[in-house]
Every structure is written in structure tokens, then in C-alpha cells.
Amino acid sequence: MEYVSFEGLRLDGRRANEIRRPRHAFAIDAQCDGSARFELGNTVIECRVDGPSERKFGGAEEGASEACALTCSHGRSAFASDGVQAGRKGDGRSKQFESVLAKALTSAVCVDLMPRCEVQVRTTVLCDDGGARAASACAAVLALADAGIPLKGIIGSCTVGHLDGEALIDVNRDEERGRGPELWTCALSAGDVPDDDENEDDGEDHLMGATGNHITVIVEELERGKTTMETFKSMHDLALAGCETSARYLRISLRARTRALAATRALEKF
């Protein structure tokens, strides 16, 4: 199997450093405090957020943290992938992901502003075409924002694979089957996007190029990982750039959403 053609195009026509087309929708579920759907190509993730609400359990005992507690639960629909189920709800892999994601999101949430509260984040994989973890993190960020939870910055997330001797960003399902090492990264991007970036027609073009924002790596998880240092380095560099791209996309989406909301409420300027 050849994952990167001689001409530098991947199986689905992308170049090594191109992520799949992202799409999103806010407030998909009126039942909860905040919700969002995030798609990366054919991977579809839904996220629901409840909170901040009063903490029901824990925290009563002495010495417990006053700060807001964020918990995650991760599930997959039965039809998410065509072949073998890659992890069910409650299995080890999924538990691990839940705790890591919770850790990552906690670092982006202004937990001190919501003492003795809890926030529940539920992510569901509707369709898994690769990169479900990265897409889940992005969906969670959108849902948190939709729920009105104060954030310190935007978490961007992406997966990077390594096949045919090349680091490939945002590997899809076909590429995941190549069994190469895979790195999932979440990074907190604290910077801002210049104001003139909101033209939605060609917003994607503005996503390109470095921003010089301050990036903090929060989570890095290497799977099937037996790589050399050089391989890891190239994957890491690409992953950072990928996180920045996705954070930028999320930031623009959020701003557009806010503007739309402001418009419906007839506010001049939020």
C-alpha cells in the first residue's frame, strides 16, 4: 500500500500537511446547556455540555478543591465504524481518553470562576473516519463555548500519523489502517485572530500561515508508538502546526457564532 504518492498526494488527494475539511454546528440539542457538532471530513462528533451546576458529589469533605470539576464521558454509536468496534463505552481505551480529555479541557476552562461547580462533557462519535479523538476535543471546545463556560483560550487538536517515511497530518481511517505510529495532540492557543478574518466566504484561506500565537501543549499521546526521536520530532512539529490551524478554525467559528447571536438579539456590538 502506498500512502503518499510519488507526486506527494495522499490517498484522498490531500497533501501531507492538509487537514480534512472541518465543519461544525452549534446548539444541536436544546435539552442541554450547550452542544455542538464537529466534523472532520467524514468523521462526525457530537458533544453535549451540562453545567456549570452545583457539585452534587464530592467536595463536601475538608480539603477538597474549591475549583470547578470537569468530567468527560465518551461514547460511540454502534454504526460509527464499518469494521471492528474500536473501543466501546466504558472500556479501558475509552476511559483513558475520557480522563485525558477532561484534563485537557480543564486547563482551558477558567475553573476558578466557578467554585464548587461541576461541568459534564459528553462526546459521541457518530461516524469514525479517523481522527475521532482530535475531532472530539474540537467538538468539546465548541460545546463548552456554546454552554457559556468561560475559557482561557482555545484548544486546538489534531492527530498526526507517520507512513511511508513521512509525517501526515489528520490521518483518516484508511491511513489509520496503515498501523503507523499516531500522535494525538491538544494544544492551548491563547492568542487572537485579527479582526478582519471574518469573511466567511474564503475564511479557509485565512487559516493558513503562522500566527505567532502562544501555544501550550497540553496533551500528547502516542499510539502504536515505536518511533525514533527524529520521527517523533517531525510528527510533533506537524502536530503543533495542526493544532494551531484547528484552533484558528474554532476561533473563527466561535466569533461568527457570537456575531450571529448578537445580530439576532439586535445588539450593535457585543
Binding site: 488527494g13 490531500r14 497533501r15 500537511n17 492538509e18 487537514i19 480534512r20 475539511r21 472541518p22 471530513g41 467524514n42 497530518i169 479557509e204 487559516l207 493558513m208 500561515g209 502546526a241 495542526g242 494551531e244 490551524t245 478554525y249
Partner: peptide, 10 residues
């Protein structure tokens, strides 16, 4: 870094 430009799904 970029997002792939034009997409069609098959």
C-alpha cells in the same frame, strides 16, 4: 499548514 481546498465526497 492548510485545510484541503476543494472537497468532493464519493
Amino acid at each position: 499548514m492548510a485545510i484541503a481546498r476543494v472537497a468532493a465526497s464519493r
